[in-house]
Design a protein around this nucleic acid. Structure first.
Lengths: 250, 250
DNA sequence: TTTGACCTTGACGCAACGGCAACGTTTCTA
DNA sequence: TAGAAACGTTGCCGTTGCGTCAAGGTCAAA
């Protein structure tokens, strides 16, 4: 047999056969005088053996190990491991499909699939003012929504919901405006501690504990540093004081 | 933010961030005077967007397309396609696990997992004689067992089973011996046509139609050529006559 | 001052082949 | 009998999504 016949017989490409030679999975057969490889039936059997394991999902390395150990206990362990692995894959795919189903159902209602639809609603409410600072806050919330795992995502939403009530929104807008006014103010400006105190008063307890409690190295952890870097010195000072105040509150 | 902070914030490696820059998924931010990349919150938002789609299983190319088309209809189609793809994967994995379960159950009984256990039993029966020719036949059957898809595999077994009955086995061994005797005989030897006729008489009808009916380009198709290449000229001639006889029989 | 923890670009590695180049051999066909 | 088609040979690059050096430059703390 020449390589093409062997390949057709077993149902693989000639490239695959040569690849198996290259990686030592299949012994090189004798050559004819013209240099062509000359295969026997036993080569086809060996190749079919390899393919059988490959199609079960074993890597070529694993197949080599399994065949080297002459089809003993080793193979059985590998197969069990493989089965566990496949089970995990099935679960993972199932979870992804579940998330997809949610996304697809919601996509019928709105196309803003960059964030979850609940969070999109929250962001719409918050964005009714033109505050430059509100924009930073919105970016931050959008980030939290994408970065957190689904369980935390619900918690973030719960934290935000009280702030979307009409009175809270009005007060929030006023606070945003006061923050905007500090854009090029001095950090020692008297309005700074006043605003920090009012902000602290405006924040629900649950949000406070969430903000203080987030470990610095978890995803979404360096929030304070990341936000202060975005704002002016006076605004950063507001944050510093705010965090101090909140820490006292716990 | 520097690249490490950004990466930690979103929960990826710095290498991943740079990779996304490299492939154009994430715009390069401004550089500080020392050459460090300087990220803003919106970069984190963009990165998190990308990750969100990536974790759903979209390829980076698809993510680029989806984001370029500004989160419209395109994305929805891709998600649906992805869902269908995942469904197919689930099915494929299920099929593999089913095959694995069979293998594992049988591995308790015997370790000869290169061929299916039923075929292993058939091969044991056939191998009771020391005929060199029987060895070729056994290789061939082992190959058919691994190469054919599961549906065909059962058919092959059905074909073989009649030959494993005691009387059939005895006659089969006698035929093998007569084939072995032709190892270095002349193709014109009078024993050749006689043996071909006896072989034809020995083969069940179902096996005949299976052998004649297999298309030459299907997997396992070139069986005649592959087998004749393994044997001596006189034995090949037996085969030629055998096939002629069998073709008449259909 | 010297670690040590960052950052930079660049390049190789990975799994399992597919595909091409550039060339020789065999086989079919006109 | 010539030429084309269909095989064979080796070798190298491309794929995916980064991980992992290598060989530096930068910056903060001890």
């Amino acid at each position: 047999m020449r390589i093409g016949e062997l390949a057709a017989l077993v149902g693989v490409s000639t490239r695959t056969v040569r690849h198996y030679h290259h990686v030592g999975l299949l012994p090189e057969p004798v050559r004819l005088t013209n240099g062509y490889r000359d295969y026997r039936l036993r080569d086809a059997v060996a190749l079919a053996r390899v393919r059988r394991l490959a199609e079960l999902g074993l890597s070529l390395d694993e197949i080599r190990d399994a065949l080297a150990d002459d089809l003993g206990r080793e193979l059985r362990e590998m197969l069990e491991e493989l089965d566990a692995d496949l089970a995990r894959q099935q679960e993972a795919i199932g979870a992804r499909r579940a998330r997809l189903a949610v996304l697809l159902a919601e996509a019928d209602l709105q196309a803003e699939s960059a964030v979850s639809p609940e969070m999109a609603a929250v962001l719409r409410d918050l964005s009714s003012g033109g505050s430059r600072f509100a924009a930073v806050d919105r970016e931050w919330l959008a980030l939290m929504d994408t970065v957190a795992d689904p369980a935390d995502r619900g918690r973030v939403l719960d934290l935000m919901l009280p702030l979307t009530e009409p009175q809270a929104l009005a007060r929030g807008h006023a606070l945003y405006e006061r923050l905007d006014e500090l854009d090029d103010a001095d950090p020692a400006d008297p309005r700074v501690p006043a605003l920090a105190a009012d902000l602290a008063a405006h924040m629900p307890d649950a949000m406070v504990t969430a903000m203080i409690g987030t470990p610095a190295d978890a995803p979404g952890g360096g929030w304070l540093e990341a936000m202060t870097a975005e704002v002016s010195p006076a605004q950063a000072e507001v944050f510093r004081l705010l965090v101090l105040t909140l820490k006292d509150r716990t």
